[in-house]
Amino acid sequence: MGFLIESTLKAVGIITSLDREFLSIVLLSLRVSGTAVIIATAAGILLAVCIYQMQSPVKRLLIPLLNTSMGLPPVVVGLFIYLLLSRSGPLGMLNLLYTPTAMIIAQCVLATPIIAGIAHASMISADPEIRFTALCLGASELQATLRVIRETRYSILSSVVAGLGRVIAEVGAVLIVGGNIAGYTRVMTTAIALEADRGDFILAIALGMILLLLSLCINAMLYIFQKRGAID
């Protein structure tokens, strides 16, 4: 127990002293996951709108498919992106494997279905009157859909936050496509795994604390958005 308390205290020391290695790992995590979620938001909302507007029977197939991909296992996504980006793979000439860009791509693939799935569900559950009224007032299909998006904006923001929460805590995909290269592709989760192996628990605990703190912030945001959505 003494060891745990001592390490935790030292970890707090690392956080407050803003250790360079520590900071660069945290910043890289934020950069990779932040960029991935921003791209995934655009892609996810577009996907949700497409499915929402769709009239064909394919829609019945797409929705369960989308729901399934909300829970894609990160290691499988990592493996898939690895095979795509590997030199011997189809996109090898892009030279992206083991770069932060590869990690962004993998996390984007993980986050997009989550954002699309939640956004689509909230658009469906929005009051059907909104769409109907908009169409009756002479709005085009697209304008009516935009109106629905506006009405469900808090749910959509929640989906973005949920996506961020998933990718920032994920280790399987970034380890495979990033390679955990020191100072280049080492993010919080992969650094924790490595430092725990080496027995250097202080840095691991410090990073774990930040990760938990971020999780807390993300969930607080989620709560606020959901509450606001309920009031609206």
Binding site: L28, L30, R31, G34, T35, I38, Y184
Partner: peptide, 10 residues
């Protein structure tokens, strides 16, 4: 956020 992220790019 995007601006901040690009600044930290190597």
């Amino acid at each position: 956020v995007l601006l901040l992220l690009t600044v930290s790019t190597g």
